[in-house]
Simulated assay, not measured.
Amino acid sequence: MTITITPAANERMRQFLASTPAAAGVRFGVKRTGCSGFAYVVDLADSVTADDQTVEVDGVRLIVDPKSLPLVDGTVIDFQRQGLNASFVFHNPNATGECGCGESFTVA
C-alpha cells in the first residue's frame, strides 16, 4: 500500500489525533455516494480490524479497509486552505473522472 500524506495534511491529522488520544489512528477509505460513485472518507478510527491495512506515514497511523484499498492505493492526501475554507484534497491515480462539484469520483 502506497499512500502519501503531505506535510500540511500530516499536521492536520496530528491535530485531530491530539484531540482524541484514544483514537487508533486515521481511517482513510471510500464510500459509495455522490453523482460519480465514490467519495473519500477521512475520520478518526476507534479500532483496527484484522482485515485492515495499516501504515505509519510520518508519525500518523493510517488505516485502510480492504474494500477501499484498491481504490485509494497510490493516493496523495493534501490539506489546503482557501480563504475561510479548509479541506483535505486527494490526488488519486485510480480516479478516471470526478463529478462537477469535486465531491465524488469514478474508477475504471
Rank of each mutant, 00 (worst) to 15 (best):
M1C: 01
M1V: 05
T2P: 07
T2C: 00
I3L: 15
T4Q: 11
I5H: 01
I5S: 03
I5A: 09
I5Q: 00
I5G: 00
A8Q: 14
A9L: 05
N10D: 10
N10A: 14
R12S: 06
M13T: 06
Q15H: 05
Q15M: 08
F16A: 14
F16Q: 10
F16C: 03
F16S: 11
L17K: 06
A18Q: 14
S19T: 10
S19C: 00
P21N: 10
A23N: 09
A23R: 10
A24C: 05
A24M: 03
A24Q: 01
F28T: 03
G29P: 07
G29Q: 09
G29E: 02
V30L: 03
V30C: 12
R32W: 00
R32H: 13
T33R: 05
T33A: 14
C35Y: 08
S36I: 00
S36H: 07
G37E: 06
G37V: 11
G37S: 10
F38A: 08
Y40V: 08
V41A: 11
V41L: 13
V42I: 11
V42E: 04
D43P: 00
D43Q: 13
D43S: 15
L44C: 03
L44R: 04
L44Y: 02
A45S: 14
S47N: 12
S47T: 10
T49I: 09
T49G: 14
D51H: 10
D52G: 11
Q53K: 11
Q53A: 12
T54S: 14
T54L: 06
V55T: 13
E56V: 11
V57G: 02
V57I: 15
V57M: 05
V57L: 13
D58W: 01
D58G: 08
G59P: 01
G59C: 04
V60R: 11
V60K: 09
V60W: 06
R61T: 15
R61F: 04
L62S: 05
L62A: 07
V64R: 01
V64L: 06
D65K: 08
K67S: 11
S68M: 12
S68E: 09
L69H: 02
L69T: 08
P70T: 07
L71M: 13
L71Y: 08
L71G: 03
L71F: 02
V72R: 08
G74D: 03
G74V: 02
T75H: 06
T75S: 11
V76L: 12
I77S: 04
F79M: 01
F79N: 02
Q82A: 14
Q82H: 05
G83I: 09
G83K: 11
G83Y: 02
G83Q: 12
L84W: 04
L84P: 03
S87E: 04
F88D: 02
F88L: 03
F88C: 02
F88Y: 15
F90L: 12
F90Q: 04
H91D: 14
H91G: 06
N92T: 10
N94E: 04
N94V: 04
N94L: 01
N94W: 00
N94R: 15
A95L: 06
G97E: 07
G97W: 10
G97V: 00
C99D: 15
C99L: 02
C101T: 13
C101I: 12
C101D: 15
G102C: 13
E103A: 15
E103C: 14
S104G: 09
F105A: 10
T106C: 07
T106K: 07
V107C: 05
A108C: 00
A108L: 06
A108V: 07
